[in-house]
Design a protein around this nucleic acid. Structure first.
Lengths: 149, 149
DNA sequence: ACTCATTGTATCGCATGAGATTTAATCGTT
DNA sequence: AACGATTAAATCTCATGCGATACAATGAGT
């Protein structure tokens, strides 16, 4: 607890990065919500679909590791996508604790449709490729620091 | 719609920054939730309190402008803080559309307590002052871009 | 085989965020 | 003063996230 130049200063500093992230994420959620509404998905739902487009059939836990989410968040989300007929849930026969998630034909088709909407988000962000990648990697490093332990 | 080097690439790129922000924010929420639990506040609740500590008596809308939130989000949040006896809500006599929010003695006292917990978040983030400020300002610029129009 | 810890999902309760709509108060214009 | 437009909050509904917990299936060690 050494090295402090006044608690007040540190408190504000903490507030700034936390709050920047919080408010920027809120803003991003609003933009993505508008963009993906056209294909009938929320951004969270899109993320699950994206993981499936990328990685094919996998368990709830596999999806969770990629999205940093747990079953208490994913189960309702995946069930919602199931009611939209975009994916199927089936217990693994090898390990009946696992629920394997697979895309339906409809779910696979949606990938193509999603691309133009993703583009509109990129345009809204309005950064050069270089700035885009730099910022992305810095935020990823921040996340890695935060999920430690 | 000119200037594209393949939609697939752009889609992934879009995903990276959106997702970085989304997942880093989730991680930050988990950290701040743990930190502020000690004073009985969530991070959103802490933000409202921080605005009041900083700016004194103000309307719901004033708080909303600073936090980029609307009454549909703030009203329940502020009512929750009211039940915790940290603040009071009173209609403005000058303009009865406005609800003025003011701190109780208990709410004012909480500011001091909150500081050490804020410190623990700063430690968890683990960035140098320079990196901290740089990242913060970049994320703020991103937010500004996203809230345009 | 038996017990105990672990793993994978699901459930419950709580707290957010946001869009759409509603209500009341105020403002601007005539 | 009267009217419509605007503004400030609140309400309703929906979709997340997460901590805590429950439950069944599996694995490890005996």
């Amino acid at each position: 607890m050494a090295n402090r130049k006044g608690l007040k200063g540190e408190m504000k500093l903490e507030g700034f990065l936390c709050f920047a992230l919080y408010s920027a994420n809120n803003a991003m959620q609003r933009v993505t919500k508008a963009a993906y509404k056209n294909i009938g998905l929320t951004y969270s739902q899109y993320l699950v679909m994206a993981v499936l487009w990328e990685g094919g059939v996998q368990s709830v836990n596999d999806i969770g590791k990629k999205l940093f989410l747990e079953s208490n968040t994913l189960t309702p989300l995946i069930k919602k996508l199931e009611t939209l007929n975009l994916l199927e849930r089936n217990r693994s026969s090898k390990d009946e604790r696992k629920v394997m998630v697979s895309l339906t034909k409809e779910g696979k088709t949606l990938e193509k449709e999603s691309r133009s909407h993703a583009n509109s988000v990129v345009e809204k962000i309005g950064l050069s490729m270089k700035d885009f990648k730099e910022l992305q990697s810095k935020i990823v490093r921040l996340r890695e620091q935060l999920v430690k332990d």
